[in-house]
């Protein structure tokens, strides 16, 4: 496992390296102090995972990431930023390749969040967008504690019938990130039943998306009173994102 930390402030860089060492004791570590250096190292040593500061001299983290993704679009990058504006998450959502997994975490967050983000992007292949970044769709809170916030968000997106691409655009993550989120949710709600059944029957029995929604209904994960709100959230998103006004039905 190779990890690259790109950060211009030495103290922060040392801190990030410490956290990575704690999480992955055997990891091979490399560090760079600006975007240009980071880009060069990323091409030379092909790290599995990159922690990238946004504001750096020479070349910003976003520019560097863009170039890294141009040559290796599957690279996992966690942006470690001090900017809480949603614009950053949106723009990153636009430049992240379909195959990549990325994360966005504010520096003001504690170590536990940093570990969580690294773990999510690195081990679970699950995009991590800091919930504090304002504007990223008012967070949906799941009342049932069996699902995490992100899982619930994915459930809502499936239930409202969005395609992978649409979910990616709405949540500012890559298509692969969406697919990973879906399969994680599937694992959690449908577990191995699907696979066993397929083996016995010799054919696909369930449509996984519909099955997930059904399972959520059965377990009472979605509050029927909130369905209307989910729809109006969707309408709001259409208006905001595509400047498309829906005619009320």
């Amino acid at each position: 496992m190779k990890v690259l930390v790109v950060e211009d402030v030495p103290a922060l860089r040392a801190h990030a390296i410490e956290v990575v060492k704690k999480l992955f004791p055997g990891a091979e570590l490399a560090e760079a102090s600006n975007g240009a250096e980071g880009l060069e190292l990323a091409t030379n040593i092909a790290p599995d995972f990159i922690i990238m500061d946004v504001s750096m001299p020479e070349m910003s983290g976003i520019k560097a990431a863009q170039k890294i993704w141009q040559s290796s679009p599957q690279r996992k990058i966690l942006f470690w930023s001090q900017y809480h504006r949603e614009a950053y998450v949106r723009e990153l959502g636009k430049i992240v390749p379909d195959e990549a997994i990325h994360g966005y975490l504010l520096k003001s967050e504690g170590d536990d969040k940093l570990e969580e983000a690294i773990n999510s992007v690195c081990n679970e292949d699950n995009p991590y967008i800091d919930p504090i970044v304002r504007g990223v769709q008012a967070r949906l809170k799941c009342k049932d504690s069996s699902l995490t916030d992100v899982e619930f968000e994915t459930l809502v997106d499936i239930a409202t019938g969005l395609t992978d691409k649409a979910i990616a655009a709405r949540r500012h993550i890559s298509v692969r990130g969406v697919q990973n989120r879906l399969s994680m949710l599937l694992d959690k709600l449908v577990k191995g039943e699907d696979a066993h059944l397929r083996e016995s029957a010799g054919m696909e029995i369930f449509n996984p998306r519909t099955r997930v929604v059904f399972e959520a209904l059965r377990r009472g994960l979605v509050d029927p009173d909130e369905v209307q709100k989910l729809e109006s959230d969707l309408t709001e998103w259409f208006d905001e994102e595509f400047d498309y006004q829906r005619v009320a039905k």
Binding site: Y83, R85, E91
Partner: peptide, 8 residues
Amino acid sequence: PSALEHLG
């Protein structure tokens, strides 16, 4: 405005 510098 940092967004101008970083995002265009």
